[in-house]
Design a protein around this nucleic acid. Structure first.
Lengths: 267, 267
DNA sequence: AATTATTTTTGTACATATTACAATTAGTAT
DNA sequence: ATACTAATTGTAATATGTACAAAAATAATT
């Protein structure tokens, strides 16, 4: 398959699914018809563009995974890749990340955080494309598989046994995992992966999993006591064959107070 | 002046100075002559593009400043702005930041760090432009004013008395100052703004200035003793009317060792 | 009904770090 | 020699971190 055919596939798929031209094609909107695509010299589009790639981490009971899609088109057809898309001309960057997240998982109201922008000249075989990486942390179970714009397959992958990824996505993933670990210490992005009411054991397991590090039970609890934004409830576990855990909940207003005094978790 | 005239100015200036078309114009390179610019409908370029903006902080003896240029062309003509430029098609993002830094200050080998990417739809009046922000910290005195591509004037501005800035540059500046403060605690970006051999008083003043925070002399020194990468020399100040300061120097190899053990300054 | 198993929760003693402040020191200037 | 200044070191009180152990609450077992 020639470079030009690759490019055609990309654009054709995009147009079919989104019923509109991709960003870079808008330039030509007035001049060409959609079925004229072959008549455009490849050098005329995909010269430069920007996209968003989402590194969606999934957490469930001590397991951290990452959501990957299998590409249905060239380039890197049949390779696993991070879900990403071109940014619409009238769409803010953050909105773009939220759209991708929603399309894939049907989740809304999730905190997505911009991390790093990748712009190596040769990172995309068809031309100059810079991409802005976003991270999100969701409950693995909350994924509702949706027939998406890009993906022929979509799957949670364990972090420590990854297939070869398309483009520079491996680099993006590794860098974003570092960023996730920094983020989880200062921002309450973890609140959405635990139930409203959670036990300290659940919280500890979550941090241990994400940070890949063990904590002492007693000392972890001592630290929690110093965090005003974690409120002890008057409820505890039922029907467990041992001393029941007390439930805690996250107190957003209290957190905002403490955050102003540039507080960090530091676990 | 019409929108189209604004756009023409931008492109014309760019071509004049850089003797090549800006990124987005490359598409048309084969079809048009440079003096044909007026014949291109404005909607055909500047629809989407990406740029780099540099937030260059200057430090000198307890004063922190930021380098701004006065724009010579529309839009925002005569406004002060962060130095920035379109990214060349065959130029990495980081290289672009280094080029801008070198053009303005003639400094090389400076650490520039990518921080945040700004992509609000309406951030540029002429079309969709996303911009990647970079920060650098240099010695204010090291600036060699150079007739640059963009600037009619170039000046160090005190951080706490800033003029109204072009585009969303005020937002970029504020956000980047936060990032600088985080960076200086974990990366040795400050080594270039102090002499090779420096006193602890100099070091303390630097951190106090950047972090806008006072430290206790004794306690600051105690912390320094725990940092293996700050080496005490057998030299001290001369001809000062008080007990002379001992010189220290930064030990890069030792720093790399400690960094692997995810060490941070935490001042 | 008493005992056991299990896991949460609290406690404790020791080491290390932080904080605020005071004392000492090594130079120039008078 | 004495005064002066700012660097350097020290100190005592407090707070935080660490490793480990004891106590407590529940269901299951005997």
């Amino acid at each position: 398959m020639t470079k030009r055919e690759y490019a055609f596939n990309i654009v054709a798929t995009f147009v079919k699914i989104n019923k509109q031209m991709p960003v870079k094609m808008l330039t030509y909107r007035s001049r060409i018809q959609q079925d004229d695509l072959y008549s455009i010299p490849i050098s005329d589009f995909f010269q430069s563009a920007f996209s968003v790639d989402c590194v969606i981490f999934g957490y469930h009971e001590g397991e951290l995974k990452v959501l990957l899609i299998e590409r249905g088109t060239e380039p890197y057809k049949n390779f696993w890749a991070l879900p990403g898309d071109l940014v619409y001309p009238n769409e803010d960057l953050n909105a773009s990340a939220l759209r991708i997240l929603k399309d894939l998982t049907s989740l809304t109201h999730i905190d997505v955080k911009q991390v790093h922008t990748f712009g190596r000249v040769d990172r995309h075989p068809l031309g100059r494309v810079i991409t802005v990486a976003y991270v999100a942390l969701v409950e693995t179970q909350d994924l509702v598989p949706v027939a998406s714009s890009w993906a022929s397959k979509i799957k949670w992958h364990t972090l420590y046994r990854l297939p070869k990824l398309a483009f520079d996505h491996r680099e993006i993933l590794d860098s974003s995992l570092d960023d996730l670990r920094k983020l989880i210490k200062s921002e309450p992005i973890w609140t959405k992966v635990l139930p409203e009411k959670f036990t300290l054991t659940q919280l500890q397991l979550l941090f241990e999993t994400v940070l890949n590090k063990q904590f002492d039970k007693g000392n972890f609890r001592k630290k929690i006591r110093g965090m005003k934004f974690l409120k002890k409830l008057n409820e505890s576990e039922k029907s467990v064959a041992h001393r029941p855990s007390i439930y805690y909940k996250f107190d957003q207003p209290k957190f905002n107070e403490q955050k102003d005094g540039d507080y960090v978790f530091d676990l």
